[in-house]
Nucleic acid binder design. Structure first.
Lengths: 231, 231
DNA sequence: AACAAAAGCGAGCAAATGTTCGCTTTTCTT
DNA sequence: AAGAAAAGCGAACATTTGCTCGCTTTTGTT
């Protein structure tokens, strides 16, 4: 029913974007006066992964610059070559994530005739990108409050956009008599929340030994059950 | 199919527990040397509601004691009569919430023969308690990281317990041939996450004018669809 | 090898933050 | 009404925290 797998998605991601850290470099090296791409991407990797680790342990606000310095092994002064202040760390992470997600997740791609197929593909793509950028999604979700108001609203809006995109496909499927769904809004909310579940509770699925492809399979099965898809 | 409503639940809550603020008083007045119940419950209400408000705006960590003082209109010294340090605020809120939830949510009540009915009741009860204690649930979910490790693990464990309780009823229903469910784990995760959705995204449902009872109705409909309940 | 530019360092500064304590005001009992 | 106890106050203190800047080390080019 769907011709995607995490394997192939991940290859696409690699060719399309490369890796997360050079993306960070590309988006920020100008204003930070970073010249050596090789050094800088390595440092970005080290710093941001440490930020993820410490934020995960006690939250971004509670993480001090001294914590970050000690844990990453980079001095205070050294750190500030890679961002100009603490809140900019969150902004950088958010901006890079949005950039990467937008590059490979095409909400408006509707080249199929079958709205159910479109829905499946939308869901699968989102699971795959959040699998690849698991820690980024988790971080942005948990620490969004550190951002400025307008940016927070951007995040809420893009969440809503995903739910709307799901809803749109369900309604379309219903109109075209592909399914019988009496509560499209609720089903859309349910599916969107299960997209978040994948990166918010990833430890649970690692523990259960369920990978992204298996999760997608479960999710698509639920789509059929919830929508009452006619075979 | 289910004889519960938020109306009746709320009445039970009031007779069983009274109100949130006197609960806070009862649990803490000894160690804080608070004598006047009347004054103290009013202050607790004022302080904790302000904590909810400020935490909601920028997070508990980012909220300073001066913010809390200014917004509540209580002096710094005055505040410290109602808790002994900042982290104790989170602990107090958490402890009171657990106490209230445990008092009126009985995970082990299985007096019915019908496991589907039991499942419905479990879900409805949880929606209702999280409706009543909406801000408490939201706060604890968002600020759990401020707590000590063992307490955080308590929270994770109780979340897992809810999912397990749901799963148990699904499996039971399947064994007794009430339904045909091929992915009980996934369905259990889905239902639990929709319980959280109610208090994490409450603004969405206020906006859509969907109340707790309507949400429960939607949820129970999904149970039927996901489990393939035989009529 | 020499030199300039980039990267890295960490003690030190200013501001912010949690908490205290001596004092005043309110409350309640007798 | 008087007095004692509880509640409330806010300036002051010690610590923490984000951040800078003069300096050293590393890197890459000629």
């Amino acid at each position: 029913m769907i011709n995607l797998s995490y394997e192939t998605f991940n290859q696409d991601f690699n060719t399309l974007i490369g890796d997360e850290w050079s993306c960070l470099f590309d988006l920020n090296h100008q204003k930070l006066n970073l010249k050596n791409r090789n050094i800088a991407t390595k440092k970005f990797k080290l710093i941001i992964e440490t930020v993820f680790k410490l934020s995960n342990e006690k939250g971004f606000q509670a993480m001090t610059m001294r914590d970050l310095s000690q844990e990453s092994g980079i001095s205070m002064g050294g750190l500030y070559k890679y961002f100009s202040n603490k809140t900019q760390i969150v902004e950088m992470i958010h901006a890079a994530m949005v950039h990467m997600a937008a590059t490979c997740l095409h909400l408006n791609d509707e080249h199929s005739e079958d709205p159910i197929f479109e829905l499946n593909e939308l869901l699968a793509r989102h699971i795959y990108i959040s699998e690849r950028l698991k820690k980024w999604f988790y971080f942005v979700f948990m620490e969004a409050k550190c951002l400025e108001r307008p940016l927070v609203e951007t995040i809420i809006a893009s969440e809503q956009a995903m739910e709307d995109a799901i809803l749109k496909r369900i309604v379309k499927a219903k109109q075209q008599n592909f399914c019988q769904c009496t509560n499209p809004d609720f089903v859309a909310a349910m599916l969107k929340v299960m997209l978040q579940e994948w990166y918010l509770k990833s430890w649970k699925y690692i523990q259960k030994d369920i990978n992204a492809d298996q999760y997608v399979a479960n999710l698509l099965l639920s789509v059929y059950q919830l929508l009452g898809v006619k075979s």
